[in-house]
């Protein structure tokens, strides 16, 4: 069993399949993190901007806009969407780290940066 696992790990490394999987997982992790950030900040900023515009013409009070921003921010955190994307991002990052560590013996960034030396750039004419 151990020998078979070694063979599969070796094939995963030499066929570059593990590297591609690590790249996919890192990409999905970054995508999920950015989506979480978008969900976290988009609605509060829209509310802030709307309240600010309102305050210029009617109330002239920036604290009202800041309060709208803080309320929206708290609502976005507690409704679970941001946490879901954040969890997805962490899972993808952990998967990339686990795969890279078990196949190459290094973390994902270090093993991918070594690919620049290992796989030379091709010239297509």
């Amino acid at each position: 069993m151990k020998a078979a696992t070694q063979a599969i790990v070796r094939i995963l490394a030499e066929s570059h399949v593990a590297a591609v999987a690590v790249v996919f997982l890192l990409f999905w992790s970054i995508e999920s993190a950015l989506t979480a950030l978008y969900w976290l900040l988009s609605v509060p900023f829209m509310n802030f901007w709307g309240a600010l515009n309102l305050s210029i013409f009617y109330v002239s009070d920036i604290f009202y806009a800041l309060k709208a921003f803080a309320t929206s921010l708290a609502m976005q955190i507690t409704n679970g969407v941001v946490l879901s994307f954040l969890f997805n991002s962490i899972v993808c990052l952990a998967g990339a780290w686990f795969l890279s560590r078990s196949v190459y013996g290094f973390g994902p960034v270090r093993s991918l940066s070594r690919y620049r030396v290992k796989v030379p750039r091709g010239i297509h004419e």
Partner: peptide, 8 residues
């Protein structure tokens, strides 16, 4: 060599 697959 101490690394898992010896790729690098």
């Amino acid at each position: 060599l101490g690394r898992r697959s010896g790729f690098f």
